[in-house]
Design a protein around this nucleic acid. Structure first.
Length: 717
DNA sequence: CATCACGCTGTTTTT
DNA sequence: CAGCGTGATG
């Protein structure tokens, strides 16, 4: 065991207070960079050191990675037993508990977890049951429906309230959406499915209604800590309330200024309501910032002073010196990417490591332009956030073959794998699923479907695969390899970029190796995203630049931070419906992004040339410009970048079409419908134009259909 | 069943 | 512009 820690030396008085407090409810209000993680780590170490059984400590964090890192740090600090602390997210805790007590909430314990795209698929398939008249024109898309239903679930409130405010365009169909929500709930029950929201809702219900189980869990987890409490919603607060109900040993840590998850019902007011849940709560504030230089902090403090509601603290730092943040109007969106690329090259030329730098943005696609530049300049980067590896079609197709073994009612996965079989479409898929249900057939018997003729040979092969997989109770790794043999030919037929997708599938093999049971493997894939390329890259060999959404950058820090800030006003929805922007949340996003920076902060924004919406937002005072305009000008250096680089093909596109002429890019060497030849793919027809000087070409023969190719690789046929 | 042309419409962030 | 739904065609 390591030497006893001298806590007084390692922590400031407020941190020490939080760490040494052993019993009772405590609310820690911790500003950005105030050593919040450090405090939690030391508290875990301290509890274990003082003889608390590590397994009875529950550390709830926002991601599983965060909890693992904290426990590793605690273990390194004092006692290896810290690794046995129960850590995870609300969702992973819920899964663990619900697998054990599924019957108590009316579920079979073999339920399957729906990830986001599964959820959308189910919802989508239920829309026809609404039997809406054709006159209903504007009905939300599947993704939007999932957003709405999920938020309703997380708020545990009827849709109307927030639909009116956030989805004003859909108020007329609110009752249909609610009906759809009921259909969706019934469907999940019937097929033993839970989505992310059900996990936490059912856990809360279980705790509330079943005092025996509640007591048992209370005894199991005698000390509870919650990180990022400002991002919890009402359900999660309820879980906390019930878990700590008996012993009251609960510490929650958070910062209301960093609440950026309102889209899933999170409410920073939970922070302030904590004392009413636990009347004996003590409040401890951490206000000293150890991360950023004074000029950066001055700007972020000023930013938050404009917040309509500000409950807590003002940060101070003892880090003097450092340069003022820079705010640069690049006049165009592509200009941001170019400016940042140049800046990064300059910094690396002066010896700065790429690992010291990060570029942050609100939405994953905001970095596309930048990624193109980085690739061209051979600057290695890792990207966090945005669309999930797991949600891409080939991964879902692949995993579906294993999901039907774990839960044979899982119609979603059956649909996927059956439709991959040649000459089986929607009709036969439904018939087969019906038949299997009626016969209560095992997955491997699918090949015996009486409707199968010569054309449906593929069904026999599918049956053989599923039979093999279930008969021999294979380890996850072998199951993955077996499915690979079956699925790879289909992959090659379905996707023309199959080499990339094949590589991604191969990543599943080492992941599967870590599990003994198929179900554990599949559960974790849904709840824990696979490691990023940076984690698997040979350490120390290469320094990577980090690109990340603000949401994924939470809790991290870098010496140099760039922020790409794009006006929402560009979006047509905001134009046509005049949806009010959530400026308060936008401000907190900016705050989270800016407080990641230790030494240097560079914010770029596309100036007034970025679109007509800009002017309209400026007029209404509801854009990024209004944040900037409101900040004291002595807190940052403002600059303009040259309008170097408008994309040539964009301006060409704007050329007005003459009479009788369809609008077309002037410099295009061919027209829609024209025949073209490609050296590798042969002859095809120009279908439509896509960005980056590419055309969509339809190839009838060469096996595959639509390819996006650059003009220069094509010639007229 | 599979494929294709065409018209309509509008955000994003994560467990 | 691009994803999605629809309806026509092989």
């Amino acid at each position: 065991m390591a030497d006893r820690i001298d806590y007084g030396k390692m922590l400031n008085p407020a941190q020490l207070d939080a760490v040494m407090a052993e019993e009772g409810p405590i609310l820690v209000i911790a500003g950005a960079g105030s050593g919040k993680t450090r405090t939690l780590v030391y508290r875990v170490a301290r509890l274990v050191e003082s003889g608390v059984d590590p397994e009875t400590i529950l550390l709830l964090t926002f991601t599983r990675k965060a909890s693992r890192e904290m426990l590793d740090r605690a273990a390194a600090l004092s006692d290896a037993r810290c690794r046995f602390v129960s850590g995870g997210t609300f969702h992973s805790l819920a899964l663990k508990v619900l697998r054990r007590y599924a019957e108590a909430v009316g579920y079979d314990n073999g339920f399957t977890i729906l990830d986001r795209s599964d959820m959308e698929e189910v919802i989508h398939s239920l829309i026809p049951e609404l039997q809406m008249p054709r006159t209903v024109q504007r009905f939300p898309k599947r993704g939007t429906l999932a957003n709405i239903l999920s938020k309703a679930a997380n708020l545990q409130a009827p849709l109307e309230g927030f639909v009116l405010e956030e989805y004003g365009q859909f108020v007329e169909v609110a009752s249909e959406i609610e009906e759809l929500g009921r259909l969706y709930a019934a469907y999940k029950r019937e097929h033993s499915l839970m989505d992310y929201d059900d996990l936490i809702i059912l856990l809360e219900r279980l705790l509330e209604e079943n005092s025996e189980i509640r007591s048992e869990l209370s005894r199991q987890y005698g000390h509870i800590m919650v990180d990022e409490y400002q991002d919890t919603n009402g359900i999660q607060a309820g879980i906390v309330k019930w878990l700590a109900h008996e012993h009251q040993n609960i510490m929650v840590v958070g910062d209301d200024s960093q609440s950026i998850y309102s889209f899933r019902g999170a409410d920073y007011r939970n922070m302030l309501d904590f004392p009413s849940l636990f009347p004996k709560a003590r409040i401890i504030k951490l206000e000293q910032n150890y991360r950023s230089t004074q000029p950066i902090l001055a700007l972020t403090n000023a930013l938050m002073e404009q917040a309509r509601e500000r409950y807590t603290k003002c940060l101070f730092t003892t880090r003097s010196g450092g340069e003022k943040p820079r705010v640069i109007n690049t006049r165009t969106e592509p200009g941001q990417a170019l400016l940042i690329t140049r800046h990064i090259k300059e910094l690396t030329a002066h010896g700065r490591s790429l690992a010291d730098m990060a570029v942050l943005f609100r939405a994953a696609y905001h970095s596309f332009e930048l990624e193109a530049h980085l690739t061209r300049e051979h600057i290695p980067y890792v990207k966090y956030g945005g669309f999930k590896f797991l949600e891409s079609a080939h991964i879902k197709d692949f995993l579906a073959h294993m999901r039907v073994l774990v839960n044979r009612d899982e119609a979603m996965s059956w649909m996927r794998i059956l439709r991959l079989v040649k000459n089986v479409g929607l009709g036969k898929t439904h018939a087969i699923i019906e038949w299997m249900k009626k016969e209560n057939a095992a997955p491997g018997q699918v090949g015996a479907w009486p409707g199968a003729g010569k054309r449906e040979q593929g069904l026999k092969e599918l049956g053989k695969l599923l039979g093999d997989l279930s008969a021999r109770d294979l380890a996850p790794e072998q199951a993955v390899e077996r499915v690979m043999i079956y699925y790879l030919p289909m992959l090659k037929e379905k996707f023309d970029d199959y080499p990339r997708r094949e590589k991604e599938l191969e990543q599943l093999i080492p992941m599967a190796r870590r599990y003994k049971k198929l179900r554990g493997f599949l559960d974790d894939l849904v709840l824990e995203p696979p490691a990023s390329p940076a984690d698997t890259a040979p350490m120390g060999k290469k320094a990577f630049l980090t690109l990340s959404t603000v949401h994924s950058a939470k809790g991290l820090e870098w010496p140099v931070v760039f922020i790409i800030w794009v006006m929402e006003g560009r979006l047509p929805s905001a134009m046509s419906y005049s949806n009010p922007l959530n400026l308060e949340e936008e401000r907190r996003l900016m705050y989270v992004a800016a407080t990641r920076a230790k030494d240097q902060l560079i914010i770029t924004y596309p100036g007034e040339e970025s679109g007509p919406a800009w002017a309209s937002y400026q007029r209404r005072g509801t854009g990024l410009s209004s944040f900037i305009a409101a900040l004291p000008t002595d807190l940052y250096l403002h600059g303009y970048a040259d309008a170097w680089n408008r994309r040539p093909h964009l301006s060409a596109m704007k050329r007005k079409a003459g009479p009788g002429e369809t609008e077309r890019r002037k410099e295009l060497p061919f027209a829609r419908g024209e025949k073209v030849r490609h050296p590798a793919f042969g002859t095809g027809v120009v279908s439509r134009f896509v960005p980056d000087n590419k055309v969509e070409i339809l190839f009838k023969k060469a096996g595959r259909k639509l390819l996006h190719l650059e003009y220069t690789t094509l010639e007229k046929a």
